[in-house]
Design a protein around this nucleic acid. Structure first.
Lengths: 348, 348
DNA sequence: AGGTAAAATGTTATCGTTAACATGATTGAG
DNA sequence: CTCAATCATGTTAACGATAACATTTTACCT
């Protein structure tokens, strides 16, 4: 039985406290607790027991200062209330937990200025790496390029800035956009609108590209007045749709492809308010397969993205980049699939 | 124009690097950057400019070691895929961002062991405080009591352990449960079941209490075989409901009050599978107003909780506890409201 | 017993920043 | 012109842990 003179130390217990308690040096205590050999079995036991009794908790702040490693990763998302992101986070969390890391969650609120602020903060906190899905008005690629030059690793997921040598984990946006557009064409739609995202991020560009390609390949006219920037949120979708609905009746689209499901929900509301029926008067499809999409009064046809897997891939890629100097940057495109429901008019 | 000899320093730029660059001491640089008086205007300008050019970023790890403050808060949630929690996090994030803190998000996956692990980790990371919503099998109050004795502040939200002197931010669970049960009684239900939560957490206890009270006050029989533990997840709701459905027909409930909406969704599935209609054959109500609840084929009657506000209150309470020694522990009960939809049978 | 290799423990310096104190430069009053 | 007060800057130590090196103790062999 070991007698503890000062079970309650003012403030937190440190190695030094334990060392003083037992009349050994802090180094010996450190070695004992880390099991790093060459501490007499008996001494080690006494140290472990005393540490337990004194409620010792290693100070990772101090450890990090020495090791220059925090085992903490930053995760920056634009909007936590889209069901897609919590699901990605769930994936990230699982990997990160298994590998012994933690995440600092930061929220850009779809604002590029705030995004840079929180990234700066993460860097000051010396996170080992950052996973980021860009805000809707992120334009400044050089900001990320400069970070990539430092020893802090970055990985984009979902909303990426492409071709600047930073890994991207997303889905085959272009191909999926192509498929869902072609699906509308096959249903006989000929005036197809696109509510497009914004900024320089991958999904804006690639979903638009896939859309245009599908029209072109299928010899369907593209109408520039039917391509409207909506951003990525419900409100933007509502407003963009209003613009389309204000067109003269014969110029209105017969189908709308929204850059993501929240935007489609906004559009849905505008269409309902205008007294039009989905899909009879106007077909509508989205992208991302939000948790609400199958539950809408007219279930939304969309592209299903493996959100959880995007999270696990992004996290494991980032950790590999951190832990292995040889690891290369790469673009990972997971497979997304067309989810046909009723809003496109196929299942009537 | 200042000439920088070594714009690129191996590793990260420190105060020392800037100091050497300008031939001053690190302390002067520190003072200049922190604007803490008594640095000559001219010198300060040179320092600021050089710091900018060298891409200096303050090292919060080192700062934290000195100040024993990390401006980081831990947030522990049991399950990120319930829409309630992302919404709480959104509230937390807003306050925390405004006050200059960050959050480390940790996930217990409804597992008390993992919960303790992540809390230990947060403590090792020396977070200034922790917000936690307990897992479904959290029983060990002393674990939290011991932490509360240290100088790390804790606040519970939603799923609290009560009466151990730690602040709780939640809703008037007992009263709300009373109301929704009474609502079922007023609709003529007389064999009312409860799918109850688990563990020692507040919502399990209080929602059950409110349920029983409503039955008692309204002179409706309580049937102990109609109170089944389901936990807090969809799967648990499904399984618990199966048990009720296996009862002989005349012993089956005519209404079911689920401890939360995900559990109600699980129950809904079981009821549908059994070929029964909601609400005609069996009424069903939940608690929490999940984002999916109004969208179900039979929209779910439930209790709406102000999730965002729970987040903001929890965060500001925690920050006040951290920053102000005089701040007292308290129990905050926000007002939740009955949301009558169709699953209870009122709006047919 | 003497000597040496191996094992156990201790000491010092460091990570980047800042508080506390120390020193040197400048100013102004008498 | 001198001396003290004020201002600007520097030095040292500390936060808690550990790597690298240094010392002491133990064990074993001849």
């Amino acid at each position: 039985m070991i007698e503890i003179r000062s079970l309650k130390v003012a403030g937190k217990v440190t190695l030094k406290h334990i060392a003083d308690e037992l009349g050994v040096s802090a180094m010996t205590v450190s070695r004992a607790l880390n099991n790093s050999g060459s501490v007499q079995g008996k001494t080690q036991e006494r140290i472990l027991e005393t540490a337990r009794q004194m409620g010792y908790r290693p100070n990772h702040i101090a450890k990090s200062l020495v090791s220059r490693r925090t085992y903490t990763l930053g995760v920056v998302i634009p909007e936590i209330s889209h069901s897609f992101f919590p699901e990605v986070i769930r994936g990230i969390e699982q990997v990160v937990y298994d590998k012994g890391y933690q995440i600092i969650l930061a929220h850009s609120s779809e604002d590029a200025v705030r995004e840079q602020e929180v990234v700066e903060m993460l860097l000051s906190k010396r996170v080992d790496g950052i996973m980021i899905s860009c805000s809707q008005n992120t334009e400044d690629a050089s900001f990320f390029e400069n970070i990539a030059k430092t020893d802090t690793r970055i990985v984009f997921f979902d909303r990426c800035i492409e071709d600047i040598g930073i890994s991207c984990i997303g889905v085959n946006d272009r191909n999926a956009a192509y498929k869902i557009t072609e699906h509308l064409i096959n249903l006989g739609k000929r005036r197809i609108a696109h509510l497009k995202g914004s900024g320089k991020v991958s999904i804006t560009k690639n979903r638009l590209l896939g859309f245009e390609e599908a029209l072109h390949q299928n010899r369907v006219n593209t109408f520039s007045e039917l391509i409207i920037e909506s951003g990525f949120q419900e409100k933007g979708g509502y407003e963009a749709m209003k613009i389309l609905l204000d067109l003269p009746t014969h110029k209105r689209p017969d189908a709308v492809f929204a850059v993501n499901d929240p935007v489609a929900f906004g559009a849905m509301e505008a269409i309902n308010e205008a007294g039009l029926r989905i899909p009879e008067d106007m077909a509508l499809v989205g992208f991302s397969d939000d948790i609400r999409s199958p539950l809408m009064s007219v279930p939304l046809t969309t592209i299903h993205q493996p959100a959880y897997d995007i999270g696990t891939k992004a996290a494991s890629k980032l950790i590999r980049l951190i832990e292995n100097d040889k690891e290369l940057q790469e673009k990972v495109m997971l497979i997304s699939t067309l989810k046909v429901r009723e809003s496109c008019g196929a299942n009537q």
